[in-house]
Design a protein around this nucleic acid. Structure first.
Length: 492
DNA sequence: TGAAATGTTGGGGCG
DNA sequence: ACGCCCCAACATTTC
């Protein structure tokens, strides 16, 4: 613990927190000085490098992490480059005995971990990998036969048969400051914040990235919104969800912390009998857990349909339609409201994600990977596993696909989940004066009323890019054709 | 006034 | 994490 003691390196990745951080906790337990490191890969060839909104978040989250570490006397060393090279190099450079980190769920990163483990071993440096970002260790909950549950319900039942997830670890009480800190880069050099144009205003106004912000958000959710969660969670207009997803995606808070906070919250405790709100919310955490296990087992989940029948599918190549979808100009108010909310605040209510997703792949017949890529770039909570599973689910090419082709009706979904249209009015202001009766299908309005609401279809707001009936029929025929062709062996 | 026609709502079957 | 169709039940309009 003096000048001579060699440090332990904590390699921070998607776990930018001090609490319930098994790698950091492990490092503190050694009693050696701790050297926290974050590596920015900066690889232009990496398709899954953080997108624009995610980089904005990462900038602020790293700032917050650095401040938290500084309060406890620790630095945060920023390095750039291929971590297969950078991590072993810095370990040697500072004479570290040990490198610790928390496992990532992305299957395509697993070979990378193996390589780094080997390189460290070859350099005589010990490495320990922990499970810190899921309720149960990745791959631990699996079917009796097989690698990984591919359907959510049995997966979640199996989780519920497990003992409760372990209690979150505290912030280490004592962490030893390293005497010498190796050089690192400045966060500002990484240029994670948008310039020219700076589109981050809506994000700044909405989010407080960082571990403290995450716990504040959790506390606020438990106190203000959990009590209504089960009934309100599907209502984008009421906005009663936890909004913890972006905090989770960079690991500012852990699922185990959330789990136990919910289990011990007043809402759960006060109900002598089971009220279901906590359970409904934890089930959402279950979806995240499910996605991570899928991504862990199937490395190419983000690009390859799980159901091989979709290897051949008559997707349409239409840049104009894709652009209209991205910019919220499809002519379907609920779809456009969702896409504009995404653009404005970097986030979209999950119900609406399903609606806009279904619209892209079913009504527009655009490949799901194009929607996935747009979400990846614009969501502050972009998470490879959740994104991939979500898009495969809505496409119906994940294995949990229903035995029928699921086509969301954007009008029905709108009237059901945004009954008076306030969500639409908030994000599609040109429809603000449309009465609730027509808010989800303005084309049905009598021309005089349209004029009265200040709407000129085709000018101030677009006509539907495709009729619902026509789109539905076209989708059913495309999806059924591909099914039949696969069955009869036309394509293998 | 009442029967028939027409409109509306909700549950079950099915893809 | 579903939509459509059908039909029954009920409500309203019509002559």
């Amino acid at each position: 613990m003096t000048t001579g003691t060699p440090p332990v390196i904590v390699w921070f990745q998607a776990d930018l927190r001090l609490g319930d951080n098994p790698a950091l906790y492990d490092a503190a337990e050694t009693g050696q000085p701790i050297l926290p490191v974050f590596v920015h890969e900066n690889d232009p060839a990496d398709r899954w490098a953080p997108g624009g909104a995610s980089r904005w978040w990462l900038h602020h989250s790293l700032e917050a992490l650095a401040a938290n570490l500084r309060h406890r006397g620790l630095p945060l060393v920023l390095r750039r480059g291929d971590c297969r090279r950078v991590i072993p190099a810095i370990a040697t450079e500072v004479g570290a005995t040990t490198v610790v980190w928390n496992r990532r769920a992305e299957g395509h990163l697993r070979p990378r971990d193996t390589e780094i483990l080997r390189a460290l071993q070859a350099a005589g440096v010990e490495a320990r990998v922990h499970d810190g970002n899921s309720l149960y260790p990745l791959g631990a909950v699996r079917p009796g036969s097989g690698e990984c549950y591919r359907v959510f319900s049995p997966f979640w039942r199996a989780c519920m048969r497990e003992p409760e997830p372990s209690r979150p670890l505290p912030v280490p009480g004592h962490m030893v400051t390293p005497v010498a800190v190796p050089p690192g880069e400045a966060l500002s050099d990484w240029a994670f914040l948008p310039r020219r144009p700076d589109w981050s205003g809506g994000l700044e106004a909405t989010w407080v990235p960082g571990e403290t912000g995450a716990h504040e958000q959790l506390r606020n959710f438990l106190e203000e919104r959990l009590a209504e969660y089960r009934f309100m969670r599907d209502r984008p207009d009421l906005d009663q969800t936890s909004r913890l997803s972006p905090h989770l995606s960079w690991g500012e808070i852990s699922p185990r912390q959330i789990w136990h906070a919910v289990r011990h919250s007043q809402v759960e405790a006060a109900s002598s009998q089971f009220n279901g709100h906590g359970e409904a919310f934890l089930r959402q955490l279950g979806w995240r857990e499910f996605c991570r296990n899928m991504a862990y087992s199937y490395a190419d989940l983000p690009t390859v349909p799980l159901n091989r029948r979709f290897d051949v599918f008559p997707w349409i190549d239409n840049a104009v339609a894709l652009r209209a979808w991205q910019q919220g100009r499809t002519g379907y108010p609920i779809v456009d409201a969702g896409m504009r909310q995404l653009w404005e605040v970097g986030w979209m209510h999950n119900r609406v994600r399903m609606i806009v997703g279904s619209f892209l792949v079913k009504h527009l017949l655009l490949p799901w990977q194009q929607g996935e890529a747009w979400f990846w770039d614009t969501l502050v909570d972009a998470d490879l596993a959740n994104n991939a599973v979500g898009w495969q689910w809505v496409t119906g090419c994940g294995t949990d696909a229903a035995p029928y082709v699921r086509v969301f009706n954007p009008i029905l979904q709108g009237t059901k989940f945004d009954p008076d249209g306030s969500y639409v009015r908030r994000y599609v202001p040109e429809l603000a004066k449309v009465p609730s009766e027509f808010i989800h299908e303005p084309w049905r309005m009598p021309p005089l009323d349209l004029a009265g609401a200040g709407v000129c279809l085709g000018k101030s707001y677009p006509h539907p890019i495709i009729g619902h009936e026509e789109g539905r029929r076209r989708a059913l025929s495309a999806f059924n054709t591909s099914k039949n062709e696969a069955r009869t062996g036309t394509y293998s």
